[in-house]
Design a binder for these strands. Structure first.
Lengths: 286, 286
DNA sequence: CGGAATACCTGACTATAGTCAGGAATCGTG
DNA sequence: CACGATTCCTGACTATAGTCAGGTATTCCG
């Protein structure tokens, strides 16, 4: 089933996509031109996005520059990073690619009835979301790692936005080394190079383990990432000998509370003095 | 929407697909090996399926032959056509690709919950079917053309199967030149090189035009091909000045009758002596 | 301020993909 | 059996993709 789908979509649509869009330009150049886009892009960003060798990318940029489609200028803040921008000619070329792309999309929908089109777009959205969900990997990470830091920044920003009283991470702080085995665990969820969620576990030998810092990026909410993080943390707690886990949460985090309840957590009385907590939950591990 | 989908699926999944499956072998070779398959394949078939230059394909086959994965032998009936078969080593290699392919499919589904998996496979099937529908093109074709012949053979075979009394095309025959402009029209529906449906129109100046030979392959039934053929024939009839169209059908063709009714046809009294007909329909063209 | 790291560039490659013209074997047809 | 058409092969190419080892600015960090 999945294989048939891959064949159909990548061969039929993908084949069109690539060679069709490239016009009479090498594919790599067309892709690069497209990726730079009207807003311009940093060379480093292009390299990771297209996964190209630095030398190869550099050469491609020289070619496009030679054709007068692109100019590569100095970076904004960091003098090492350079940014590529489209010239007017490059912008015209980009518009052309964009138009082709639209044309392609249209050619896919045009023969269908209105009902079929609606069904197709719904199904495509569904496939895209679920594929994205399936590409999200969850793994341990040191809380000092840049990926973890990025998550915690996003987490803090979100809580500060959503809590009536604002949020200051330092007031409920946990030391990094408490979230590193064997004392605890810090997990990040990522999709390729982008981190989209995190969760931490703190073990208290002889007492329930505690779940902290559970956060999922808005871009992937509803894809079950929170549930997966929670499962993984519980598994680790059980393996470390904890008989139960508990956690606290703020009353404004309604979707988190829904997750806890559906994952088998029961509300319990206050067990700590976290100034941001309104509800406390616990779950017995089997 | 469609563009986002293309990006996600072809880039993320497709990227895996190709390079991942190729192992340490050039992509073109891997694709060819895969396409030959355990059953073997004719070189000509490979050429059209992969859309490769004859010289290039020949060279690829020599390479695979050199590695002992493939043998190219003489064709079955036609001495010019040669068939490629996998050796034992080639078969082992193919199994490996097949395994990788399974692994890939599994890796896509594994992180999902049972519910998500079910939703994903449903959505994939839907996308695949509708994309296939959108790739079906309908166009005029001479009834003597091999594509038309293939359709008529399939049409005859199917009616012979389904009619209680069997079916003999010659007894309700229409001359080829009656289905060629300006006397009439013959349409075939095809997806890439495969023909999947047909329909014919016969014009009777001053009288209703007549629709004949409407057939849709079982492989694409339910995708609206019949409706599209019907629409196209009606459009042509109207353009040629016909005020209405009519047709006859056999009582065993229930899905065809459902199509006619939903397309605005009304049952009318017998208007011909076709021995296979039980029902007669007509539609006024606006 | 002096390494170490980072971001990018250049030169010198190899590998893969794809094209084209010409030729040999085979088939269908009159 | 002569003829053109078809199928495949070979040789001789070109173009594209990708790699790797230096080298030069710039920034970070103690």
């Amino acid at each position: 089933m999945v294989r048939r789908f891959n064949r159909t979509v990548t061969q039929r649509v993908g084949a069109l996509d690539d060679s069709y869009l490239a016009r009479d330009r090498p594919l790599a150049q067309a892709r690069l031109l497209w990726e730079i886009g009207p807003a311009g892009a940093e060379v480093a960003a292009l390299r990771t996005r297209l996964d190209l060798d630095a030398g190869y990318l550099s050469r491609l940029l020289r070619t496009l520059e030679g054709e007068g489609l692109v100019v590569v200028g100095p970076g904004e803040s960091d003098g090492r990073v350079r940014t590529a921008r489209l010239t007017d000619a490059g912008r015209a070329e980009w518009d052309l690619l964009d138009g082709k792309s639209d044309e392609l999309a249209w050619s896919m929908l045009e023969p269908l009835t209105a009902g079929q089109r609606a069904r197709l777009t719904t199904a495509m959205t569904e496939v895209e979301r679920l594929l994205m969900a399936s590409l999200i990997t969850i793994g341990p990470c040191h809380p000092g790692d840049p990926r973890a830091r990025a998550c915690l920044r996003a987490y803090t920003r979100e809580l500060a936005d959503r809590f009536d009283a604002g949020f200051d991470l330092t007031r409920s702080s946990v030391e990094d080394n408490e979230l590193v085995p064997p004392a605890g665990l810090f997990l990040v969820a990522s999709i390729s190079t982008e981190t989209v969620g995190c969760g931490a576990l703190r073990l208290h030998p002889g007492e329930p383990a505690e779940i902290k810092r559970l956060w999922v990026s808005g871009s992937v909410r509803g894809l079950g990432v929170g549930r997966r993080l929670l499962d993984e943390l519980e598994r680790h707690a059980a393996a470390a000998g904890a008989g139960s886990v508990r956690l606290d949460t703020n009353r404004s985090l309604t979707e988190a509370m829904r997750l806890y309840r559906s994952a088998g957590y029961r509300e319990i009385p206050r067990y700590n003095t976290n100034p941001y907590a309104h509800h406390w939950f616990a779950k017995t591990l089997s």
